[in-house]
Design a protein around this nucleic acid. Structure first.
Lengths: 225, 225
DNA sequence: GTGCGCAGAATATGATCAAATTTTTCAGAG
DNA sequence: CTCTGAAAAATTTGATCATATTCTGCGCAC
């Protein structure tokens, strides 16, 4: 999604700034469950792990705290926040307001090429599920939703939704560790059919179902821990 | 334990980090229309204006771009974004989803002391209107809404709403410059009555009205320019 | 119109200072 | 003698700055 960020395709030869690259690496760490909820994130740790200088790392951490994806304690430590029941409820409320709307708008505008890309993404997702590849599942699932919502041409809704995903990203690994990736009934097929039929309302309904299913699994996984 | 308490109470002026202070100053500049849409924001300009070092300023700017309150161009310039019609539509959609919900929740939980504070805030707001004090009007209006929503005890919804306000903040000065502050029919009184009556639905309706009114004025003001 | 510096701004580094945490030390009670 | 717990040293980490480097935009010669 990355709507706030510079579009590299405008100038593909320009060397990307380090802070940008660090930010994206940190984003992936959070989004795909490489960082555990409650874990401390230190500047010097990231400079070591990512091989970057201190300033770019600081900026990336600041951006992430601003996104709510990291939280700064009263003492100046930064941790990956743990989701409370209240957080989950708020995230579900917002997701159910935003993502169906994005799907609805996307269904009205999506190009055939983008539909094909989504289909390919869903195939890769199913393959990852079959292989028990959690990282692959999380990556493709994000790319699927991200690709769909990008077609809505609504950058502010998109950026806001992205931030929500960053909030529950760290908990997804826990969910997958608990349930595996096998028993997830697939709302994506329903969504792809709605897109093929050009039915925005059906697309929105499919996304509502996907969101409800996802948040229910997060809730249950965190309740058991 | 006791020694730690003693030490921290002896020194109640816990020095706030500069980057935090700079961020808050920058936030106020944006929120209360001190920065015009389209205006360039430079690091060195802010270091001069705010008397801060470069690192804290850089971090504050990064946080703001991450909030969508500033936008970084492909080249490494940072500007205050101008609202398009599409942006306004998205902002209105989100505000009408979020702010009535916050008001509803706040009405269920707000304490009498907080109600009094809101009333005082509304009085100050009306006084600012009477004096034609635009800065005071913007400040009190933000404090009124912010104070109400804080009572909802929903930090994620609150943070998201705050970011929306940052997006249209720079355009408010234009609105006030065009219309003055006199002809704003007051939804706040309606809201205060709903709070006094303990009627969450009425509070939510009042906020819907306030949002519609505010966004309509932004739309009209920007259309005329 | 194209290419070449030049000024200015942004990026990034490492040093330095300050704060917090962890480890060590040590006195005294049991 | 050992164990406990708090004070103090040591270490880790964060915050800030000065400075070097890189990039962009613009003027100017050709």
């Amino acid at each position: 999604m990355l709507t706030n960020e510079a579009v590299s395709s405008v100038r593909p030869l320009a060397r990307r700034p380090a802070h940008q690259s660090v930010y994206e690496q940190l984003r992936d760490l959070i989004l795909f469950g490489e960082l555990a909820p409650g874990q401390a994130v230190t500047i010097q740790g990231l400079t070591r792990d990512l091989g970057a200088g201190m300033t770019p790392v600081r900026e990336a951490i600041r951006r992430m705290t601003s996104n709510g994806a990291l939280s700064m304690q009263g003492n100046r430590r930064v941790i990956v926040p743990e989701l409370t029941e209240s957080c989950i409820e708020q995230l579900e409320f917002m997701r159910k307001n935003l993502e169906p709307e994005l799907a609805h708008r996307a269904a009205l505008r999506i190009t055939p090429a983008a539909k094909d890309a989504l289909k390919a993404c869903d195939d890769a997702l199913n393959k990852a599920i079959a292989l028990g590849d959690i990282r692959g599942y999380l990556t493709q699932n994000y790319r699927f939703h991200s690709g769909l919502y990008a077609a809505a041409d609504a950058p502010i809704l998109l950026a806001t939704t992205d931030r929500l995903w960053l909030r529950f990203g760290p908990s997804l690994r826990v969910v997958c560790g608990r349930f595996g990736t096998a028993n997830l009934p697939d709302k994506h097929a329903e969504l792809l059919e709605a897109l093929a039929a050009g039915d925005p309302d059906a697309a929105a309904r499919a996304v509502v179902g996907d969101v409800e299913q996802g948040m229910r699994q997060i809730r249950e996984a965190l309740r058991d821990i």
